[in-house]
Design a protein around this nucleic acid. Structure first.
Length: 515
RNA sequence: GGCCCGGUGGUCUAGCGGUUUAGGACGCCGCCCUUUCACGGCGGAAAUCGCGGGUUCGAAUCCCGUCCGGGCUACCA
């Protein structure tokens, strides 16, 4: 039987990096085995439903380049793929009836208040909390009928068998056992008629012929309920793979405090899908050897459940930056320009850079910075429309000193503006020396009038000046020239940058500094 | 409180009883390259493998205990 996995998010909010990693594993695993990856929307909680959530998922997954073989947007043999729609279609009803008929499930008529009271009593008396079947688990059919006739709202619970050992074989951790007496009876159908996760997800996994369930380790605790459900139906459970969670720098669950958790925020900041997925896959998984930076195909080939790790991993932003920059350096200027263009079309990218920033994340100052970064990037793109070749050369020179796509905007800025803003410190340090006006004039006269320039010509001119004026080291010649041309003390090699700027820009920029 | 999961340098990890003076990567430090910053190269600091007991000729690797961290304990997923 071919491998079938599913990504089953609940549309309650954003798609965060932890969820992305789960899909990445699903995707890698399915592709490795030529199987199918299915998207299923678990929208059984009406109170937490967020109408924007599904489009967030779609946008994020599209950005990440993860495609599904079946799902709400591509259809498939097991449609519909939204649980609310499946409920409407009556898919769950016969299965509940079956459980009721076979005695594996029962109706319970407690009100929420009664349940709260019960839980408080259990906590005070240090008993395990949960519904272990007070009056309704063992109620007579007559009692149930009476309550139903009175129109009392009820839920349907699974009757967890007593005095049994419930077993789940987890691929990562092996066999895990529970004394069934410690497992309370889970609600299968809520009073509003909607199925719970416990019920809908398991029934759907069975109906959709899911072979492997990859989910977060926070699900381990409810796994015995799930295996009991499969037992009740007499179904063979899927293979469970409980992936370790990704935590923040403090070891706690990843949250806003550690920076972005929203995948689209990373996209907006100029991280590319390949490196992000690569990086994230390495938290909790390893190919078993020393490989780290891998191409998509290589990742697919290398992926194996055996490489999964049981312990939670931390999200190391520094390493993400490294891998993103590393991949940037392996790309051609054309590919980079295309990637920047794609980024500029990502709706969330612009939103991110203009959105108000909360005080604890930098506030207004940070927002101003982001807006400036975005403006620089747009300027780069705009310039590329009129002089694509020039922009490509700029990208090539800056490629090895950026870590994200967005960085290219500010990195290339001095190439693109008429008059680069000069860093006052740089000016103070290099421009007040006596020889500077003469130096700039010499270079301007020698290079500024040419048709075009090669790197060699630029280098020759600078070296000639140094030799003619008795400079043994190039520094005092190079630095002022760089400041005159770029306004900065850092950047690409001077000769390369001069050649790219070209004679006309050189002429203008030198002239600014000559009386 | 109960049940469950986890524990190799700061971080991600390799390791599955002996070839290990515990390997790689990020980060950090230094050197080299060099006109700067970076990239790249080289080198370094950094882990008594949570701790304590066993088992064994031999344990990070197996067993038990213990501590610490985390999850669940909802008519949420």
């Amino acid at each position: 039987m071919s491998v079938r996995v599913r990504f089953a998010p609940s549309p309650t909010g954003l798609l965060h990096v932890g969820a992305l990693r789960t899909v990445v594993f699903d995707d890698l695993f399915a592709r490795k085995h030529g199987g199918q990856n299915i998207l299923r929307i678990e929208d059984t909680d009406r109170t937490r439903y967020n109408p924007d959530s599904e489009s967030e998922f779609v946008e994020t997954l599209a950005w990440a380049g993860i495609e599904f073989d079946e799902g709400p947007h591509v259809g498939g043999p097991h449609a519909p793929y939204r649980q609310s729609e499946r409920k409407e279609a009556g898919i769950y009803t016969p299965w509940v009836e079956q459980l009721l008929a076979t005695g594996h499930a029962y109706r319970a008529f407690e009100t929420p208040d009664e349940l709260t009271e019960m839980r408080e009593y259990q906590q005070i008396n240090k008993l395990p909390t949960g519904y272990f079947g007070g009056k309704w688990r063992d109620a007579t059919p007559e009692e149930v009928e009476t309550a139903a006739a009175e129109g009392k709202p009820s839920v349907i619970r699974l009757r967890i068998p007593r005095d049994k050992t419930l077993v789940m074989d987890d691929v990562i951790r092996g066999r895990i056992e529970w004394d069934s007496n410690t497992i309370d009876d889970p609600v299968l159908i809520k009073a509003d008629g909607m199925p719970t996760y416990h019920f809908a997800a398991m029934v759907d996994d069975h109906l959709m012929e899911i072979t492997h369930v990859l989910r977060g380790e926070e699900w381990i605790s409810s796994a015995p309920k799930h295996v009991a459900l499969f037992d009740a139906f007499g179904w063979k459970p899927p293979i469970f793979v409980h992936c370790p969670v990704i935590v923040g720098a403090d070891g706690k669950k990843l949250s806003k405090r550690h920076g972005a958790t929203r995948v689209l925020d990373y996209a907006a900041q100029g991280f590319m899908p390949g490196p992000l997925k690569n990086f994230i896959a390495l938290i909790g998984w390893s190919p078993g050897d020393d490989r780290e930076v891998m191409a998509e195909d290589e990742l697919v080939q290398a992926f194996a459940l055996e490489g999964l790790q049981p312990s939670p991993g931390r999200f190391d932003f520094e390493k993400l930056k490294w891998i993103n920059g590393h991949v940037i350096r392996s790309m051609s200027p054309e590919e980079l320009l295309a990637a920047i263009q794609t980024l500029s079309q990502l709706a969330h990218a612009k939103i991110y850079h203009f959105a108000e920033v909360p005080e604890d994340e930098g506030g207004a100052a940070e927002q101003t910075k982001r807006m400036a970064r975005w403006a620089s990037l747009e300027r780069l793109l705009e310039y590329a429309e009129s002089d694509r070749a020039y922009v490509l050369q700029c990208i090539e020179l800056e490629r090895e000193r950026v870590t994200t796509l967005v960085d290219f905007g500010e990195a290339c800025e001095f190439f693109l503006v008429e008059e680069p803003v000069a860093d006052p410190k740089a000016v103070e340090k290099w421009m007040s020396q006596e020889h500077v006006p003469g130096l700039l004039m010499t270079l301007r006269d020698r290079l500024g009038g040419q048709e075009e320039l090669t790197v060699q010509e630029c280098e020759a001119a600078v070296r000639a000046y140094a030799a003619a004026n008795g400079f043994e080291k190039l520094g005092p010649v190079v630095h002022p020239t760089r400041v005159a041309l770029t306004g900065k003390t850092v950047g690409p090699g001077l000769f390369e940058l001069m050649a790219v700027l070209g004679p006309q820009r050189l002429y203008k920029r030198f002239s600014r500094w000559i009386g």
